[in-house]
Design a protein around this nucleic acid. Structure first.
Lengths: 198, 198
DNA sequence: CCGATGATGACAGCCACTGACATCACATGT
DNA sequence: ACATGTGATGTCAGTGGCTGTCATCATCGG
């Protein structure tokens, strides 16, 4: 297949993450990344749509995970339950390699441009979840609301997890992301229950 | 002050919106916008940080509105009530000129790059609301959750409003955005109450 | 051993964006 | 009226992201 070493895409992604972490996203040129991977700038753009996308490699898989989890939820599950299950799976996926997730998060958080891209990805996930809910019969205002609110809870849980994880990395029973997601949803439920205006 | 006609910034923003609407964001060059406003490309970049920012002129005012509304909410109001009040004000702001909002929304929705920027702005609003809640004593998981969930409801209400507004534009008692925001929050409350998993 | 296929390299070019410097309109003080 | 300062604008050169085009090379099937 390839010309030289295999897995050009992976090498590019690896080199990009490393360089972005070392010297920042803006101060890194695509040419640098390509050379670090033993390739040329042109080849970089054949594998990734732009300079940011290289950090969002494998997004489609995640999107599949979310929609499948919702589709496979028991018919008795409420919309929020289905969304909750999907987002807990999402959290478990992150939990698999906390080290890398945190490295990547530091890079993304440091750059406005990268945060933009991340938000668009999360928005795509939200839309996909809403679509999956509609397919199992949830009517329209509810589907969108459940997906958006679920993602809102996930964002809070994720932020907490990323900020607190450093020392207590990995051991069970402590503060795994799926558990935090579930907790966030419950707290959100209570917050809304305390709402006075009807 | 200025050299020629006054309000260079406003002219640039107007020309940009028009050109983006007519021929699309990507097929419009900054030089075109500047010439349409009787200025040069360099001057455009003195007024706006980049090609997208020209559509997000006046964002700081909105941010102020949100934080002030939360700060001025009665001490008895729950976090979700304060957020709800802020987002209803936000909706009322949009309602002032529905025509322009819809024009702008069509342009933004048509471009991924512009949607990216919009999501970042909304995220900044969310963070600001969370900060305002913290300042009035709401502890941390709750502040972030209330802000994120409120914005989630707003997004759904806004999407509905933008999609449905065309015919029934402007008359009272029909489907104003603030009312839709309140409705969305109530529906979200019910959705979460239906959650089975505790 | 050869031709097809797909990935890569090599150029040329557009456009977003920036730094540096010159220039012009306007306000102010004398 | 005139000089002068201030801020906005114009001009120019340059970097870097990104794309189209074509040549080239590695590998696979025959």
């Amino acid at each position: 297949m390839g010309r030289w070493e295999p897995n050009a895409r992976g090498r590019l992604a690896e080199a990009a993450l490393k360089l972005y972490a070392e010297q920042g996203f803006e101060r890194t040129t695509v040419t640098e990344i390509a050379e670090a991977a033993g390739l040329t700038e042109r080849t970089f753009f054949r594998h990734f749509a732009d300079k940011r996308e290289v950090l969002f490699y494998g997004t489609e898989m995640t999107l599949d995970l979310l929609t499948r989890t919702i589709a496979e939820a028991p018919a008795s599950a409420s919309p929020m339950d289905a969304v909750g299950a999907a987002l807990e799976s999402f959290g478990a996926f992150f939990q698999e390699d906390p080290e890398r997730v945190r490295r990547r998060d530091a890079v993304v958080s440091a750059s406005t441009e990268l945060r933009e891209r991340e938000l668009v990805k999360l928005d795509a996930f939200t839309s996909a979840m809403a679509g999956a809910l509609r397919e199992r019969g949830t009517p329209e205002p509810a589907a969108g609301l459940a997906a958006e609110a679920g993602m809102a809870a996930f964002k809070v849980a994720y932020a907490h997890w990323v900020a607190a994880e450093p020392g207590t990395a990995g051991r069970a029973g402590e503060q795994e992301l799926p558990r935090l997601v579930r907790k966030a949803l419950t707290e959100l439920q209570e917050l809304l229950a305390d709402r006075a205006s009807v």
